[in-house]
């Protein structure tokens, strides 16, 4: 009966005596410290970026720097980040728009239609795209994709517009190959895996009951997907899209290699442009003047802010559209 006595003794202990063991506390403190380090690092990064860029921000003004259209590191030493904000938002939103449907379609095929082995292969290939270092994609873009797209797409379209729609020509811009559209297409390919992976996962998490309920109403396979699977996983799909957008906004190397690096507006479709990330990586080595370096830091700070806003919006969208416990909240 000793076992029984021991159980009784344990049960009669107060919760603090029972759970206040040393190991428990060490674990709690350890977790707390690790969590705190993450928060602290993020805030410290933002603050130090802000202070490193403070010379530029105070000279041109918080909004003045943001909306300034001139970036001249050679003569006037005047800096404004507007062209790069435009470049970043245009390329990343366009890449998101172009990638969304193909990414969801790939996910539907892998999760719903493909036989298991094929779905497994496709999923891994798609994930492989995400694993390829962006500099490798960049160099492939420079030597293979860009010459091809220039000769077989941009030039014919440009020549056609010269003859038939001269008003379009200035909007199309210089079809040199390196430019906004090339960067956008490469970004599109690079961000597809994120939407696909999250969409795939959320398709697989749709409760069996939902699929069966649609089937029982006489829905065909595609109708089950449209009626039960996609609505139920919209939270996951949107989360993937937002992750993709975040990735596109921050993508640096491949974009810097392909976008053509022009620092003044207006940007054209085929013509060169710049993004916030690409201007930083292109110019930090040559930033000898303090104000130039401070301006690059400030661009970094604004990029940080934009990423933060995108993440907050993403979290909000996910909360709004996620389905928990069968309820749309």
């Amino acid at each position: 009966m000793t076992g029984n006595n021991l159980t009784n003794k344990k049960i009669s202990l107060s919760p603090s005596a029972l759970y206040g063991w040393l190991g428990d506390r060490i674990f709690a403190y350890g977790i707390f410290i690790l969590g705190f380090i993450v928060i602290f690092t993020t805030i410290a990064m933002a603050v130090s970026l802000y202070f490193s860029g403070t010379e530029a921000i105070s000279k041109f003004g918080f909004f003045g720097f943001m909306t300034g259209r001139v970036w001249d590191a050679a003569i006037s030493m005047e800096f404004g980040t507007w062209p790069f904000i435009v470049g970043t938002l245009v390329t990343s939103l366009a890449a998101l728009a172009l990638s969304f449907l193909p990414a969801v379609a790939i996910a539907i095929f892998t999760a719903e239609y493909a036989p298991k082995w094929l779905g497994y292969i496709i999923e891994n290939l798609v994930n492989l795209i995400a694993a390829v270092p962006s500099v490798v994609i960049g160099i492939w873009g420079i030597f293979i994709f860009t010459p091809w797209v220039r000769d077989s797409v941009y030039m014919p379209v440009y020549l056609w517009s010269l003859e038939n729609a001269p008003t379009l020509t200035p909007i199309l811009g210089n079809p040199a190959g390196y430019g906004m559209l090339t960067a956008t297409i490469i970004l599109t390919i690079m961000i597809i895996p994120f939407t696909t992976a999250l969409a795939c996962d959320s398709f697989r998490m749709v409760p069996k009951e939902q699929r069966e309920a649609a089937s029982a109403l006489g829905a065909t396979k595609w109708e089950v997907i449209r009626m039960a699977v996609i609505p139920y996983s919209r939270g996951g799909i949107l989360a993937g899209a937002m992750l993709s957008l975040g990735r596109a906004i921050g993508e640096t190397m491949a974009v810097a290699m392909l976008i053509g690096n022009k620092n003044t507006l207006p940007f054209t479709i085929f013509g060169p442009g710049s993004t916030m990330a690409s201007v930083i990586v292109n110019e930090f080595r040559e930033a000898v003047e303090n104000i130039h370096l401070a301006s690059l830091m400030a661009v970094g700070f604004y990029l940080f802010l934009i990423s933060l806003v995108v993440n907050l919006v993403a979290a909000w969208i996910q909360r709004k559209y996620a389905i928990t416990g069968g309820r749309a909240v």
């Binding site: 309920a213 029982a216 039960a228 139920y232 389905i323 069968g326």
Partner: peptide
């Protein structure tokens, strides 16, 4: 068919 768990389409 009606299932064990209620299955309204949540959206």
């Amino acid at each position: 068919m009606v299932f064990q768990k209620p299955t309204p389409f949540p959206t």
